[in-house]
Amino acid sequence: MPYERAAPAPNLVPIAFRAGGFLPRRIPFMAGATFAAALGLWWTATSLGWVSDLALPPPAGVLAAFSEMITNGMLVKHMAASLQRLLIGFALGGSFGIAVGFAIGLSSIARSSALPLVSALFPIPKIALLPLFILWLGIGEVSKVATIAFGVFSPMVIATFGGVDSVDRGLIRMAQSFGVPRWTIIRRIVLPGAMPAILSGARISASIAIILLTAAEMIGAQYGIGAMVLASGNLMRTEQLVAGVLVLSALGFSVSQGIGLAEKRLLRWR
């Protein structure tokens, strides 16, 4: 009688569950609570006088500095100057970077000539080139934009050609076996296949662009968040300084949200 239930063994020991953990999840409202706690700590520390107002202004002071800059129009002026530099620099560096990355990914000549050059440029901290750009292009907008564009260019090249290299060769051979023209293969197979890498390159180079933007504006600019932060420091107006830093945080955050949105739309097929 093989299917009859066996009599229970004398000592039944339950087995232990061993597969817990390694699955971090998002707990709802935890992010908001953390921010509230940080704000609370900041408020307590300043209102109880643990730190001087000069070293760390109270939240209310920062808020006041914000509203002052909004009403006297300075925030818009600084933001407009910074955004313009950032967008033009990022667009220029990004588009050239993608183009050169594709060339390196698709042509042996470009790979043998441009890649070593880009690899040599890549490790240069691009802010070191700003003085040179100022000598060449003057102290105005062009030298700042050039620094940002240059800083965006090399990581975009590296990300793009890595993405092109990672495109499934089987898909390319498939398209060739159907006689699909080269340009269509590049547009419909290689470009979408490289898109995940291009977008993650954009994410990295956007943060590089914001660093360069701030540094370039600190070296020589009348308007711009970086210039404003530096000037506030020099005048010991820390509440305005902190407000500027918060603006930079918001700027970086919205750029990365924007790229996240682009990923969601362009990489829906994943």
Binding site: G170, M174, S177, R188, I189, W269, R270
Partner: peptide, 17 residues
Amino acid sequence: LNPLTYVFQDFALVPWL
């Protein structure tokens, strides 16, 4: 349109189409 046409073992379908 394409006299010699392959059918591949791994299908070779384009994932984003």
